[in-house]
Design a protein around this nucleic acid. Structure first.
Lengths: 202, 202
DNA sequence: ACTGTAATACGAGACGGTCCGTCTCGTCTA
DNA sequence: TAGACGAGACGGACCGTCTCGTATTACAGT
């Protein structure tokens, strides 16, 4: 058995300290970016001891992850499914535009970029993120595309994972690598081009 | 005027030290990955003083960049253009498969991932990389696609930058985020799906 | 319910460690 | 003889662990 460092007692946890730490992490990530985001700075800003952070989170990335989850919990608008009006192109444009808006929103953008970078460096965090957020989201996307495929709106030979990569990959790339303007127009162009194919154009 | 720290005399540069440093950086990146790659370790491995590194490179990422350029200079197979046999699909598959092979090659993969991460953290390095490698490569890709478009093999409304993102973006994503197996089959699927569009399937 | 007690999370910060980027040193070489 | 070189000392930033009192909390026993 793994010699488990005695687990802290969740019942006695200080909720105010938890929120202060997550808020400080979010604010600092937005202000100074990933490169200068340190646990010491988070603790100082939150008025917390470093040990309080190390007691409840395994890494800086885990703090950021929780902080972003907290931020997303404001309005509990967690959609159980992607929109399905029957018009695949319109639905995809709506979803990708929403993704663009989210990735462009200043309050989210820098902390999310910091988290994305941390994920590249930390396999454990990557696994956690994949399990709790990425894979569920991908499953929603696959499901919507599968329904379209069953309705004959998608070629029967299309690999749904490839389709997801084709639609969402370009957005993620532009965002993470700051390779170009991330606009609703770009989202629309990606959807149209992916659906119709390069041969056919828009 | 910017108070320029007096530039070192390139004529007196020790070529052996330069090569030792670049080789050490490459080896260390492959062995311990980005997270534990330090300038101190590079200097120690190369038998060089730290100052020698700081004298000639502005950052750890710049060393990695030069190291990879050195590695790529073995066989000077720099293609001035992407292949054009007239068969766009076959040409694209060939190029994307080559990209997959390169990103999969153990000797390149880890150092390139380390460089990619460094680029995310260092705007100056990002600009340098974009100017010296990424933008020229993108221009080659656009050029090949433009010829296809002029030959009527690509829809006239297709934005060539979107097309490049659609074709190469999914590969880059899978590679950097280790999101799935990076195989020739995946490259082929991306090319086929992007060309024919999701509606049409393969 | 009330209160006493034992447990423990908390803020603060000291500690040794790694790595940073700068700065001397002699030494060697072009 | 000027300047690059290897070596490494230096102060500083953070790391992750630890040890302090202090303050809260869960859980008695009445």
């Amino acid at each position: 058995m793994t010699t488990q460092r005695k687990a802290p007692d969740a019942a006695r946890r200080n909720e105010a300290a938890r929120r202060a730490i997550l808020t400080a992490a979010l604010d600092l990530a937005g202000e100074v970016g990933y490169a200068r985001l340190s646990i010491e700075a988070i603790a100082a800003r939150a008025g917390a001891g470093k040990q309080t952070i190390y007691r409840w989170w395994p890494s800086k990335g885990a703090v950021l992850f929780d902080a972003l989850l907290m931020l997303a919990e404001g309005p509990p608008d967690q959609p159980a499914d992607l929109p399905d009006t029957g018009d695949l192109e319109a639905d995809l444009k709506m979803v990708l535009r929403a993704t663009v808006a989210e990735l462009t929103e200043p309050r989210y953008s820098e902390p999310m970029r910091a988290l994305a970078i941390e994920i590249l460096l930390d396999p454990a965090l990557a696994a956690d993120y994949a399990e709790r957020l990425d894979e569920p989201m991908r499953e929603l996307k696959r499901r919507r595309l599968r329904k379209a495929q069953e309705a004959g709106q998608l070629g029967p030979g299309v690999d749904l994972d490839v389709a997801v990569d084709l639609l969402w990959g370009p957005l993620k790339n532009r965002w993470l690598h700051r390779e170009g303007p991330l606009t609703a127009e770009f989202a629309d162009a990606v959807v149209e081009t992916a659906l119709n194919g390069l041969r056919q154009g828009r």
